[in-house]
Amino acid sequence: MRVPPLLTLVLVAIWLLLNNTIAPRDILLGLLIAVLLMLAAAQMRPVQPRLRQLWVAIPFTFVVLWDILKSNWNVARIVLGIVKDRRVVSGFIDIPLDLRDPHGLAILAAIITSTPGTAWAGLSEDGSVLKLHVLDLRDEEEWIRMIKQRYEQPLMRIFG
């Protein structure tokens, strides 16, 4: 049985963070627990992610953090009603997706839903169309381009 190395390292990191230590003894114990857990979980998770260009994740994290900050600001202005005399129209948009990897989709869902102003409302049966709810739906094309370029492209580079 194969133990995925990256996930094992993540589990060790979680163990060390939980114990708030980097003592060699705890690293060893963490490794042992992580490997045992991975062996136990291997039977339940048949789909292994194929990671291609993992380094893309580093700039991508900052892009997402920046977008979350920006959209917090935008939603705050809408809630407080300081949007310069225009009506804020919210609604659903359909975005054609090329991303198929379930792990990539899960991350896309988490990003879109954690970002205030956009919320995941479902994927079509065949997984080709993503339905989103957008709070400030001014330019539909702009939103589609944004999601595809800023989020979908990097995710497709990370998960092949």
Partner: peptide, 17 residues
């Protein structure tokens, strides 16, 4: 916010920033 779907966006501010 006016309806259910719009209100979903409020709490995610507290969850993030």
């Amino acid at each position: 916010l006016p309806d259910f779907f719009a209100r979903v966006h409020g709490p995610s501010m507290g969850n993030t920033v």
